[in-house]
């Protein structure tokens, strides 16, 4: 187990190094410099600015320093926001984004599993088709359209929820729903197909033959086993939630990391773009690691030695 985790961590570090490097060089080759403005700056000030942000050094020095700083969890100052460092921006924004993300994950898991279970139990009946149409619809609608429509209908037209901001529980409902729509659909589909597979197993037939009720079969035997693919979806789920948050937070005016990131793209605030990209990558890679470990813990069929897909 330890060896396995060690190996996974090594890969993650390598991936991370790749991301940091790619980000660094992409940003370095980005055309224009971050201090360009309509009114040209005096050379002296531009030179000072460059020195302040370490841009006057040769690239390998900058790269080395950047790697060291990242290792020390220091993402540097923001080009645009003088009063904040990228670290502060991440710390402040992520608090909000994490709450929104967890709410969405909760909704996605609850609704997704329920829909998927219903669909599987009522296989090829109208409930199945109904649930799957909802699920496919959830996948088919891009999140910015979903969020705009939800906001338009429930806040602007019906006035049930506030339009935007992140203040009370009511403010959180629409963004959490909008963010959850795509993963809900994915989870519903995953649950359905893995439930169907589990349901066709002999032990379920045995249980049914023994006279167990459908509900106890579902709860005790099926759902637990059917959850494995859902667990493995947690990595991509984190990615969906994070990228979804860019759009949702912008539309709902939520002061989270996602909206800061989108703004920093617009501002070409390179240190923020780099820092947040690296931060998100770390979170995503940790999720993947967590899933791998969870998978091993939950599924007795998987031995720690081998990789899943090797035949």
């Amino acid at each position: 187990m330890l060896r396995y985790i060690g190996k996974r961590v090594l890969y993650i570090l390598l991936s991370l190094w790749l991301i940091v490097t790619a980000t660094f060089f992409l940003m370095r080759f980005a055309p224009g410099n971050p201090f360009t403005s309509e009114k040209r700056l005096p050379a002296q000030i531009e030179a000072n600015l460059k020195a302040h942000y370490g841009l006057d050094q040769p690239w390998y020095v900058q790269y080395g320093e950047y790697l060291v700083k990242i290792a020390q969890w220091d993402f540097g100052p923001s080009f645009k926001y003088k009063s904040q460092t990228v670290n502060q921006l991440i710390a402040d924004g992520f608090q909000v984004s994490a709450v929104l993300g967890l709410m969405a994950i909760f909704i996605a898991l609850a609704v997704g599993v329920i829909l998927g279970t219903i669909a599987a139990l009522k296989h090829n009946r109208w409930q199945d088709y109904g649930a799957m149409i909802i699920a496919v619809a959830g996948i088919s609608v891009p999140s910015f359209i979903m969020a705009t429509v939800l906001q338009y209908v429930f806040a602007l037209q019906l006035g049930i929820f506030p339009v935007a901001r992140w203040e009370s529980f009511m403010h959180t409902v629409l963004p959490a729903l909008a963010l959850a729509s795509t993963p809900t659909a994915f989870i519903a589909r995953l649950t359905r197909s893995s439930m169907l597979e589990v349901l066709s197993n002999d032990y379920i037939k045995t249980a049914r033959a023994k006279g167990l009720s459908q509900s106890s079969i579902t709860v005790r035997h099926t759902i637990r086993n059917a959850m494995l693919p859902v667990v493995s979806y947690m990595g991509p789920l984190a990615a969906t939630i994070i990228t979804g948050s860019f759009v949702i937070e912008k539309i709902f005016g939520i002061p989270g990391l996602g909206s800061s990131f989108v703004l920093s793209i617009g501002n070409r605030d390179y240190t923020v773009i780099m820092g947040v990209t690296v931060f998100y990558s770390i979170i995503l890679l940790l999720c993947v690691l967590l899933v791998d470990i969870l998978y091993v813990l939950i599924d007795p069929r998987i031995k720690l030695t081998g990789r899943k897909e090797s035949a």
Binding site: T148, Q151, A155, L156, G159, P162, V163, A164, R165, K250, I251, F252, G253, P255, S259, L263
Partner: peptide, 18 residues
Amino acid sequence: MTIVNDENTVLGMFEKNE
């Protein structure tokens, strides 16, 4: 002074007296 970037959202907030 709230900080909301999206122009449509801001107009929506105004229309709903936020």
